[in-house]
Design a protein around this nucleic acid. Structure first.
Length: 228
DNA sequence: ACCTGATCATGC
DNA sequence: GCATGATCAGGT
């Protein structure tokens, strides 16, 4: 059960590794890597994602690119309940708030990152000890035309608000499948943004997130039933 | 019960 | 601060 955190050379190799860890518990996987499993995720919110990244040999780093750039694939773990329903929204990327003139959906980071996503469902109910939570069957997803249309529409609407200096009026309620929410160390974090008069001002950093209804539809499209 | 805004850890 | 990985938790 030992693993080598080297980047997979092909999609087939990546999927083989992903399928081989399905059914294992987070504790088992952590043990195989000589890592200790936290009692809860309050202070380790990215632990599951990093564990899976390591197992699959994702390229480490904080670059705004796909996890497997050479394969064009982004990795996302997704917490699901006993019914296979996503328990949380899915973070995609930080939102650009300045220097966005000329930016199009096709050239956006959101579009690029969602070209192909390897979804790894993981039990997320807090009543289940982290070490006992099971990893589910992976899904290699590429948005269909309907999904792309929804994403593009939301992205363009959100970006228009931002370009018009209306980012402060945007809330998580905007968007059918893609929403904008705070994404920073805390509410005191600030970054540059466009003001209403076109000048530069400061506001809280924001990120793009996929709503649970959207990701649930993706899981249902592949399984039609719970993935665990 | 669900969702939105807030938050935690880490490496530059 | 920015970008990665996300989940927490109080209010509705």
């Amino acid at each position: 059960m030992k693993t080598t955190p080297k980047p997979p050379h092909s999609i087939e190799e990546l999927m083989l590794r992903a399928n081989n860890m399905a059914g294992l518990t987070l504790g088992q996987l952590a043990d195989s890597h000589g890592l200790s499993t936290p009692l809860n995720l309050k202070r380790d919110k990215g632990w599951v994602g990093q564990l899976i990244e390591h197992e699959l040999g994702a390229i480490a780093g904080s670059k705004p690119q796909q996890d497997f750039l050479h394969l064009g694939i982004e990795l996302k773990t997704i917490p699901v309940d006993s019914k296979g329903k996503p328990m949380e929204t899915t973070y995609v990327t930080v939102a650009p708030l300045v220097n966005i003139q000329g930016l199009t959906w096709e050239n956006s980071v959101v579009c690029h990152k969602l070209q192909t996503v390897l979804w790894v469902p993981v039990q997320g109910e807090r009543q289940i000890p982290v070490t006992d939570r099971k990893i589910g069957t992976p899904i290699l997803w590429t948005p269909n035309s309907d999904e792309i249309a929804l994403l593009k529409q939301d992205w363009e609407e959100i970006m228009e608000f931002i370009s018009l200096g209306q980012v402060q009026q945007l809330t998580a309620r905007h968007g059918e499948v893609l929403q904008l929410r705070p994404k920073g160390a805390n509410s005191r974090s600030v970054t540059q943004s466009i003001a209403q008069d076109g000048s530069t001002t400061m506001t809280n950093p924001r990120g793009f997130y996929l709503k649970t209804q959207f990701t649930q539809a993706i899981l249902t499209r592949f399984f039609g039933y719970p993935p665990l």
